[in-house]
């Protein structure tokens, strides 16, 4: 079974402990909402699962499909079937979007696709995502609007056909129509067996993709693991009740700290 099993995961970022013992299992076929206040470690968890070098694992284990992924490189994790749709996708200078897409599809094939097959598949995916096909010839995410970047993430998910997709605030920056397009794409893949772990601050996306479970991260730990009614409750009441019911003090994020978002978009460009 292609389950993701995370045990007692501790992660440091720049010397500071952000994840403090995460335990979480995503079973094959699951569709899980990951909730939690700003700055409590949701994106950090995704980065650690995918193996970003800044996120250092100091304790614990992660397995996927019964394989220890912590000694795999990031590209190996991707080829194993993990996909991360980033909160802030990088603008990669000089890389043509369609060259990029062709490469990432070919590296997981025995033989490279013919150009014809590639273009057909690409054209269909662009159509499905409602992205103008001309954008295939732009540079990867360079100058894309917030919403265009997010759609480009889902387009890649579609082309790569992962077993488990981790989507980080995929709905932020999307207009109403685009949210529907993205939700439809996610649902279609889910029906075909793709598991989901989805971060969002808004119930709207979850109303469209119907998670079967919701988990809440506070202070770098999963503090609640329940059914989808948790989403409604957080949407109505926020996170204060957790403090009262579970007796957990919710630390406020420090404003002057960089979050992943800021970091990832800071492209070292001198003009």
């Amino acid at each position: 079974m292609k389950n993701l099993v995370i045990k007692n995961l501790h992660v440091n970022v720049e010397g500071k402990e952000i994840l403090k013992g995460v335990n979480l299992t995503i079973n094959e076929g699951d569709n899980v909402a990951l909730l939690g206040p700003n700055g409590h470690g949701k994106s950090t968890l995704f980065m650690a699962i995918m193996g970003h070098p800044k996120y250092k694992i100091t304790e614990g284990s992660i397995t996927f499909d019964n394989k220890d992924i912590l000694n795999m490189s990031t590209d190996e994790r991707s080829k194993l079937g993990l996909f991360l749709g980033l909160q802030n996708p990088s603008e990669v200078p000089g890389v043509n979007n369609s060259d990029f897409l062709k490469n990432i599809m070919n590296v997981r094939r025995e033989k490279p696709m013919t150009l014809f097959t590639f273009y057909k598949e690409l054209e269909n995916s662009y159509k499905e995502m409602g992205i103008p096909f001309e954008m295939a010839n732009r540079n990867l995410n360079e100058g894309f609007s917030g919403g265009e970047k997010k759609r480009n993430e889902i387009l890649q998910m579609n082309l790569l056909n992962p077993s488990l997709s981790m989507l980080d605030e995929i709905d932020s920056g999307l207009d109403v129509d685009a949210i529907n397009v993205v939700a439809n794409a996610i649902n279609k893949k889910h029906q075909n067996g793709m598991s989901l772990l989805v971060i969002s601050h808004y119930a709207r996306l979850f109303d469209l993709i119907h998670p079967n479970r919701a988990v809440i991260m506070v202070n770098g730990k999963i503090v609640l693991d329940g059914d989808a009614t948790l989403i409604k409750r957080v949407d109505k009441e926020g996170y204060e009740w957790i403090k009262n019911e579970l007796g957990i003090e919710i630390t406020k994020p420090e404003i002057n700290k960089k979050s992943i978002g800021v970091c990832a978009t800071k492209v070292a460009m001198k003009k």
Binding site: H52, T74, S78, L86, S90, V95, I104, V107, M269
Partner: peptide
């Protein structure tokens, strides 16, 4: 424009299944 390849660019490309060498060659 003088751009510096940073960890985020490389991570992004690798997270899509490209090895470090494949990612650099693409750029």
């Amino acid at each position: 424009i003088v751009g510096r390849l940073n960890d985020e660019h490389l991570f992004y490309l690798k997270s899509r299944g490209l090895t470090e060498i494949e990612a650099k060659a693409l750029i």
